[in-house]
Amino acid sequence: MKYIEAIRQAMYDEMARDERVFVLGEDVGKGGVLNTTQGLRDAFGSARVLDTPLSESAIVGVAIGAAMHGMRPIAEMQFADFIFPATNQIISEAAKIRYRSNNDWEAPLVIRVPYGATGGGALYHSQCPESVFFGTPGLKIVAPATTADAYALLVAAVRDPDPVLYFEHKKCYLSISGSLSPDPVRIGQANVQRVGTDVTVITYGVVLHDVLRAAEIAAARDGVSVHVLDVRTLQPLDTEAIVEAASHTGKVMIVHEDNKTGGVGAEIAALICEHALFDLDAPIVRVCGPDVHAVAMSPTLEKAFLINEEMLVRAIMTLARA
């Protein structure tokens, strides 16, 4: 099963299981511009697969109102790049509904956010805006990288009593396949993707797969053993798993596609410093998107922005020798 099919299947299964669940967003009726909601309108009707006006703040605001009135909406942002008009509804409203009402009200909604560079998306169809929301109390943020996690974390998000931002990397849609796991995944639970002894890489999103390939190359070419932790949930971060993974090798590299400055990696590094500084044998290394807005349309500039396998192998080797 492909990653995109897992997302679709999770929505289908949750809508079939619970009639409070409905999907709303731009063009979701026809299947979505990225095809994630294909077939849902035929199965559940246009009232539960609701085409909205082109109006992101209303998509989230309406979802909040429906969630407070007992529904379990899944609101789709067509592209992560277009989430910003809804930011006030997400940060000022959804995130604070429970706290500000002293637990009288809750807003159990999911906001699906297709993010990241796929090639040819340019500045406004490629961004990784997770750091804008990261650190906002009351929000949960997940970012699955595998098919099994795409399914399990979407199911967990729909069933969660609080607002969840579900970051789905567009490059994973068709390029990542796998089987579904019968085991549920708890929000806030990282996953060791590869066991190793020399260098620990902590990552999330599509670059996990670049990291895993780089780890194979480093092992085959230079005999370097790489330990890989996929955090899967950005908020709350799995501090215990991060500290354990860092201490396991004493050499830590953090990888994400989002910009380096103020990215989630900065918080991961801070957690390691707080809890495991004396277990480290070398300074923490971050391999992240440069502090450029996003990829450009020009293929040369796009390539120069993105993290690739070679870059990762070099960084792993340098850290292994440090």
Partner: peptide, 25 residues
Amino acid sequence: VFTGSSPVATQIPHAVGAAYAARLR
């Protein structure tokens, strides 16, 4: 009475969403 906040007008889409939920049910 649904919980409100200080940034004005944010409650307007909430009312619309609650009305949509009411209609669905």
